[in-house]
Design a protein around this nucleic acid. Structure first.
Ligand SMILES: [Mn+2]
Ligand SMILES: [Mn+2]
Ligand SMILES: [Zn+2]
Ligand SMILES: [Zn+2]
Lengths: 146, 146
DNA sequence: TAGTTTATGATATTCATTTTCAATTGTCAA
DNA sequence: TTGACAATTGAAAATGAATATCATAAACTA
């Protein structure tokens, strides 16, 4: 079963309808797997394919996609929601955000085992998800030519 | 030199004036070291001591305090800025946020050495700060009596 | 204390997001 | 294929946190 089939399934499962709008929004997100687009950036891209769409529909759909686990909501402290396609089951990557140019670099691999173990033991806290961001300077911005 | 003296110094250093409003806001934050108050929560507490204060003053002051390194701005993904007194120089604690009751638990100790080393090496990224949150269930909410 | 500068409070404004609601569309049983 | 009915949509208004504006007030300093 490919991604589109899974998508249709997920919608049907919960009684949601498959609309053109939802299809187009998913397409845009899939075509931008590597990006971390904001709601309005997604709106702008979707409008190229489907100019009649309303902004509210995009916001509504992104919320729905998050509920369905199709998309993951990110917060880069820039005052807007951003989204990425739900990669692998256990969302194991961190984001490095450049304080100068705003570049977002992904860091695969968790490397949080120590920390998570310590938390579960000393704090008796059951971890469901984590959110790890690093702020600093990317290689480009560190070079003296900048 | 105690905390208040340091505070006065920091203001004077940059040409800022010491006003009653700033003093009262600092007091409220110091009296709530263990909390992670939002701007409006701080406003409400400040008004108990100084009812004439304006909301804008509280927002402005919190921004100023962040610039001066008196306070640290937090983002718990609840749509509002939260602040805590700048603890130790290297802001080494993480937050565990309960998905059920909203409790915020602090985790002292970094335990990110592995991860940070890996990033600096493999990504050529200079880390200035990090932001680590864990979402899950606190001990209270895990007990069957809930 | 006077003179200069910074800060304040009230209010208006911004901006992302959400809500409202009448009109439209997808689904599914007949 | 159709009709009934629930879900969805787009336009517009509303919300809510944060910021900007501006006349007045308070702090600093010589
Ligand atoms: Mn990512
Ligand atoms: Mn804390
Ligand atoms: Zn950069
Ligand atoms: Zn809890």
């Amino acid at each position: 079963m490919n991604e589109i089939e899974k998508f249709k399934e997920k919608l049907k499962d919960k009684g949601y309808k498959l609309t053109t709008q939802r299809r187009v929004i998913l397409d845009v997100i899939m075509e931008n797997r590597d990006k971390h687009l904001s709601s309005e950036e997604i709106y702008d891209l979707v409008r190229l394919k489907y100019p009649e769409i309303g902004l509210a529909t995009v916001y509504r759909t992104l919320q729905l996609f998050e509920e369905l686990g199709i998309v993951y909501k990110l917060n880069f402290d820039d005052g807007r929601n951003r989204y990425e396609l739900y990669h692998n089951e256990n969302h194991q990557h961190h984001h490095l955000i450049c304080l100068k140019c705003g570049a977002v670099i992904e860091m695969e691999g968790d490397l949080l085992e120590n920390l998570e173990e310590a938390i579960e033991e000393t704090k008796d806290f059951e971890i469901i998800d984590h959110n790890v961001k690093f702020f600093g300077y990317c290689s480009k911005c560190r070079s003296r030519y900048n």
